[in-house]
Amino acid sequence: MDTLVLTKGVPDFREGKVSFDEDGHLERGKTPTVMNPNDEHALQAALQTRVQHGGNVAVMSMGPPGYKDVLQEAMESVYADELFLISDREMAAADTWATAITLSAAIEEMGVPDLIFAGFKTADGETGHTGPQTCWCLDMPLITHVVALDVDEDAGRVRAKRLVEGDISEMETVETDLPAFIVADPEFDPSYRTARHRLTLKDLRETARERAAEFEDVLTVWDHADINVDPDYIGLDGSPTIVSSVDPIPKPPAEREATMVDPEDADAMQSVVDEMRPLASDVAAAGGD
């Protein structure tokens, strides 16, 4: 069972990590890059498949050389056997369509696996297009919003439980032939029901920690020539998307407003309690601790 996970590096949007220019635009070069959070669910789906069925797991990303760190992080999550970085200046400024063309060409170069996993959407683009568009280029069956997964290797089929239009209150079970493309939903819940699965997971985790330290030994870097794509169809030149305008991202305040409270002042402390009580009630009503 060969599987592939697509992942991407995105700016670290946590407060204090993001750098803006004077117009309020994101400065990517000065903002740390992290693995796209939604890709973690795709990695978990691939890991479950590997634990249950064995085989080879690869992780692929398209981006600058710095994305090697993202691939290393993904390797530690899914215990991958191979890493692929598709990196070339010709690919810069690609929209989702040009990205899909590039990724699909790279997948065909490596050999189409039994299952390809992608995250729901990226934290920087929020379109959710790249996974389905890559699938379209490869002419594969597509199942989106997947929350549970089961593979029948003998029958060459995959069965998935998915949210209907992303609505957690309504689900359906669908089935299709392999190879197939799976978009994991943030609600995806990996399942390790047997002792054998849990022991396999433990062994893979220990092995991955050792291999991740030397991840470049299993890293393949390809440029546009390696995957045989025409520069006119990738990067900015191959991107049909036209951005009509961009709203500047407001800068966070340099300082927060704070009220100093003397713990010896009973009235002041009571005001803190009064302020916090409604919030505690909301948590209790939601079933929290």
Rank of each mutant, 00 (worst) to 15 (best):
residue 63 G to C: 01
residue 64 P to C: 00
residue 68 K to C: 09
residue 72 Q to A: 15
residue 74 A to W: 04
residue 77 S to A: 15
residue 78 V to F: 01
residue 82 E to V: 06
residue 83 L to F: 12
residue 84 F to P: 02
residue 84 F to E: 02
residue 85 L to G: 05
residue 86 I to K: 03
residue 86 I to C: 03
residue 89 R to A: 04
residue 91 M to V: 02
residue 91 M to N: 06
residue 94 A to T: 02
residue 95 D to P: 04
residue 100 A to V: 11
residue 101 I to P: 01
residue 102 T to F: 02
residue 103 L to I: 07
residue 104 S to C: 06
residue 105 A to C: 11
residue 107 I to D: 04
residue 109 E to M: 08
residue 111 G to W: 07
residue 111 G to C: 03
residue 113 P to K: 00
residue 116 I to T: 05
residue 121 K to N: 13
residue 121 K to L: 11
residue 124 D to A: 00
residue 125 G to A: 13
residue 125 G to H: 01
residue 125 G to W: 05
residue 127 T to C: 08
residue 128 G to P: 00
residue 135 C to Q: 04
residue 135 C to E: 05
residue 136 W to F: 12
residue 137 C to S: 14
residue 139 D to A: 15
residue 140 M to S: 10
residue 143 I to K: 04
residue 144 T to Y: 10
residue 144 T to A: 13
residue 145 H to Y: 15
residue 147 V to A: 02
residue 148 A to H: 11
residue 149 L to P: 02
residue 149 L to N: 08
residue 151 V to G: 03
residue 155 A to D: 11
residue 155 A to H: 12
residue 157 R to G: 04
residue 158 V to H: 08
residue 161 K to Y: 10
residue 162 R to M: 10
residue 163 L to M: 08
residue 171 M to W: 07
residue 172 E to T: 13
residue 177 D to N: 15
residue 179 P to E: 00
residue 179 P to L: 09
residue 182 I to T: 08
residue 184 A to I: 11
residue 186 P to K: 09
residue 186 P to M: 07
residue 186 P to I: 12
residue 188 F to T: 01
residue 190 P to S: 14
residue 191 S to A: 15
residue 193 R to D: 15
residue 193 R to C: 13
residue 195 A to W: 13
